[in-house]
């Protein structure tokens, strides 16, 4: 087991190097650079001065030297300076990572709390009215674009009803650690989490429903029935065990997927997380931040995959790791 994890972890290194190279190349291939964004539009800075700044920042060096410098520092946790925010990228990300992780985690929890019972009901009692309602809901969830749904939620619950704050992640004037603070954070999280979750249930419900329908007619279920196992127990002891297994294994993918997919939600709710920062940084051509963000979310995906593999190998006895 340990050997397997170690092997997988080592395999991540070439993946990460390749990822960083691709990201670096892409960022270089984009029109303009940090200097363009910061000074070109400023009439007080002459083109000669811009060129000087470029030289000073090393932007005229060959790409591999620039890459070497960048990656060398990145492994030490230094992704450089943000030209827009005038502070180290790392400290800029630090606060926001927490926000995004919190948002994704709660979204994932709500997704599972909703999708697992609904998927089970739909799969077990197929073609009943409950199943039909769940399937209908699922079609809506699938067909509705996230940003429109999030905007609607924001409009309805914040603008019209005023139940929830319109944006941000919390009131900075409230003392962290107090009960009030927690309630305030929760209020700010509620709408973004619900918008993401209500729509994000699609895959899990669909998968679970189909898988239960498949499992129901399997031979081992017939064996269970022929043993005199009551119907409820046929589900809890046999069918669900088999159907939920891939969902547990998918946890890793799901969370990283949510982290890297938080762009829309965070922008709409002006929630200060990685996604929102990402959009802003692209608009402002704050490339050090963009590359750092892509790097971080790419790494998250790779780690999530590893996590999923590990979970699967633990929960499924058929996957033997030596």
């Amino acid at each position: 087991m340990l050997k397997f994890i170690l092997r997988r972890a080592l395999l991540m290194i070439p993946q990460l190097i390749l990822l960083s190279l691709i990201i670096f190349m892409l960022s270089k291939a984009m029109p303009g650079d940090a200097v363009t964004g910061a000074f070109m539009s400023n009439p007080n800075v002459s083109p000669e001065q811009v060129e000087k700044i470029r030289e000073k920042l090393g932007l005229n060096d060959p790409w591999y030297e620039q890459y070497g410098r960048w990656i060398g520092k990145a492994v030490q946790g230094d992704f450089g300076q943000s030209y827009v925010h005038k502070q180290p990228v790392t400290s800029l990300l630090a606060g926001r990572i927490e926000n995004t992780v919190l948002l994704s985690l709660f979204t994932a929890i709500v997704i599972y709390l909703l999708a697992i019972p609904l998927g089970i009901v739909a799969g077990r009692w197929t073609d009943t009215w409950a199943d039909k309602m769940i399937v209908t809901y699922n079609y809506f969830a699938f067909a509705t674009p996230l940003f429109i749904f999030a905007l609607l939620m924001l409009f309805l619950f914040s603008f019209i009803l005023g139940w929830f704050p319109i944006g941000g992640s919390g009131n900075i004037r409230i003392d962290p650690g107090s009960w009030e603070y927690i309630v305030d954070r929760a209020k700010h999280l509620f709408l973004p989490v619900m918008s993401g979750a209500l729509i994000g249930t699609y895959g899990t419900i669909q998968y679970l429903r189909n898988d239960i329908i498949d499992q129901k007619i399997k031979d081992y279920v017939k064996t269970a029935r022929s043993k005199g196992v009551p119907e409820g127990k046929v589900y809890t002891r046999h069918i669900l065990r088999n159907s939920l297994l891939p969902i547990a294994a998918f946890l890793g993918y799901e969370i990283t997927g949510l982290i890297s997919g938080s762009i829309f939600i965070e922008s709409i709710y002006s929630y200060p997380g990685l996604g929102q920062l990402f959009l802003q940084s692209i608009a402002q051509r704050d490339f050090t931040v963009v590359t750092a963000l892509v790097m971080v979310s790419g790494a998250a995906v790779i780690i999530g995959t590893l996590l999923s593999d590990i979970i699967l190998s633990i929960v499924d006895p058929r996957i033997r790791i030596e």
Partner: peptide
């Protein structure tokens, strides 16, 4: 091959 629950 299929009559037994693979996870028990």
């Amino acid at each position: 091959m299929t009559a037994l629950n693979p996870l028990a």
